[in-house]
Design a protein around this nucleic acid. Structure first.
Length: 489
RNA sequence: CGGGGCGUAGCGCAGUCCGGUAGCGCAUCUGCUUUGGGAGCAGAGGGUCGUCGGUUCAAAUCCGGCCGCCCCGACCA
């Protein structure tokens, strides 16, 4: 139905690219691998930021900003960290430009004393600063977040899901004890889960990453893992317990309340503009984007319909009454009163852009004292009395939010299955059947083998999984709990 | 880095095999009529055909080099 959008069933990744382009969420930039986030996409990021920032503040964090340029030597200080990020670093080597031999083009001028890398993540700069800021247990905990851009020079990019530059937030906290740091790590994972499920309407599986999948430099990494419509997994957020690794690398010690000296315990956690990709791939359909009401810039789109001038005046008067009611209830809306496009076009565009509820109001409705509300996610059309419409709409928005979650949860549940042998597993993954719950006791090399043989990876060791004795599907070693394997983005 | 595809008007494409005045749809602009699921009619503007070179009377088209982008895979938030 929608123009220029490849149906999901035909080619899921082409559909994704089409949706992003057609809904004007993002555009390719002159720089390979980078994207321009257009207003429709950026509005989603602003909604995400607004809500998460509140949740971070509510859990005691404050915002700060650290520079994008990191001395190359900083990257060398933590062994695993270097290894993990070295290949993805963009390196700044010169300052200034000057004309080249031809006089028509430019070349870099002064070679820098020391190279800088564009931050792939900020642990190193931040811990270099924390060294100065932390002396005593009285300086702890230190709970700082930053909203920033980061650069990771990837071989292959996908709009929102993986780009050379992306926007994110990174929390970096310092604690006096391991227990406290672990508690923080898990608390922030909980914040992410709350946000994913209650705002993005996206069910997630919280849990632990395997040794092979954890963040470079972490003791362990927690994550929330979601299932997209094509049954592939998407890591939607991570929270790391960094132990004393960075404190040792940057020599950050503090005096304890026992007057001894100890290294500081650390966490870091982040979510990125990838969440926009997650929303698209969780809820959207062949006609456009579907945005959960709680993250929609404008949950309601009003479309006045009028043929003649005299109709127009009375319709607009009714629209004005309605918008005032919506405003009083704090419901965001936009009125599409463009005269040069037809209602049909507006309807199609509203679906493309993902307004959760569209309200049309014309002379016919006015005569009957009604308006027509259409829910984006289900296409359900409702006739609402003009008296008390806003109240009704508020309830509908809650309902939509809930239905989106339920629908996504049903999809996740329907495509999550227990698999007990490696041969069944291979078959399951080859058939793209979703999340496989398997017993696992393998090591990193075993994981690598599974990945090579099936393309599936260990996504998450669920925190709330049922304890169950079993045997590892690959090694036969005893296992106490099932883990999730799946193909992933 | 491998595999595939593409580069022609703002966007999507045809034209290339078989060389001969650069086309179509959408969008844009003007006018009139329209408005309840992507409006109609009439008119108008807009292109160094990615780039460099070769063949030819003549190149979007044939030949060669180069550049860029997208999709798929390996790597990864």
């Amino acid at each position: 139905m929608a123009k220029n959008i490849t149906p999901r069933a035909k080619d899921y990744s082409q559909w994704y690219v089409d949706i992003v382009r057609e809904a004007k969420l993002a555009d390719y930039s002159p720089v390979k691998g980078c994207m321009v986030i257009r207003p429709n996409g950026y509005a989603m990021w602003e909604s995400i930021q607004r809500q998460l920032d509140k949740m971070f503040k509510d859990t005691g964090h404050v915002n700060a900003y650290f520079p994008m340029l990191i001395p190359q030597s900083f990257m060398e200080k933590e062994a695993e960290h270097v290894e993990g990020f070295a290949m993805e670093c963009a390196v700044v080597t010169h300052s200034g430009l000057e004309p080249d031999e031809s006089g028509k083009k430019l070349k870099p001028k002064g070679k820098l004393e020391e190279n800088y890398v564009l931050r792939p993540t900020s642990e190193t700069v931040i811990w270099a600063m924390y060294k100065n800021w932390i002396q005593s247990y009285r300086d702890l905990p230190l709970l700082i977040n930053q909203w920033a851009n980061v650069y990771r020079w990837e071989m292959r990019t996908r709009l929102f899901l993986r780009t050379a530059e992306f926007l994110w937030q990174e929390g970096h906290t310092a604690h006096a004890t391991a227990e406290e740091a672990v508690e923080e790590t898990i608390r922030m994972l909980g914040v992410y889960r709350d946000f994913a499920e209650n705002y993005m309407a996206m069910p997630v599986i919280p849990g632990l990453k395997s040794e092979g999948q954890k963040f470079p430099g972490a003791v362990n990494t927690y994550c929330i893992e979601a299932m997209m419509q094509d049954k592939k997994a998407l890591q939607a957020g991570t929270s790391h317990f960094l132990g004393q690794n960075f404190a040792k690398a940057f020599d950050v010690q503090f005096q304890t309340d026992q007057n001894s000296l100890d290294y500081v315990w650390a966490t870091s956690w982040g979510v990125s503009t990838r969440l926009i990709g997650a929303i698209i791939m969780t809820h959207s359909d062949d006609d456009g984007v579907v945005i959960p009401p709680r993250l929609a810039q404008w949950p309601v789109l009003l479309v006045p319909i009028a043929r003649k001038e005299e109709e127009r005046a009375s319709v607009m008067a009714a629209i004005d009454r309605l918008t005032k009611e919506l405003k009083d209830k704090g419901i965001g809306f936009r009125v599409d009163d463009r005269a040069n496009v037809t209602p049909g076009f507006k309807f199609a565009e509203a679906e493309l852009f993902g307004y959760p509820i569209r309200i049309e109001l014309g002379p016919r409705d006015l005569a009957e004292g009604n308006c027509i509300a259409t829910l984006r996610h289900s296409r359900e059309k409702l006739t609402l009395p003009l008296a008390g419409t806003a109240q009704e709409v508020a309830g509908l928005l809650d309902r939509v939010q809930q239905e989106l979650f339920d629908r996504a949860k049903a999809h996740q549940d329907a495509n999550t299955h227990q698999v007990n042998s490696y041969s069944d597993f291979k078959e399951f993954i080859a058939a793209d059947s979703g999340f496989a719950l398997v017993h696992w006791a393998g090591d990193t090399a075993d994981e690598k083998r599974v990945q090579e043989e099936t393309k599936a990876t260990l996504r998450v060791i669920p925190m709330h999984g049922e304890p169950e004795d079993g045997e590892c599907m690959l090694t036969g070693k005893p296992s106490k709990q099932r883990v999730v394997f799946a193909k992933a983005y």
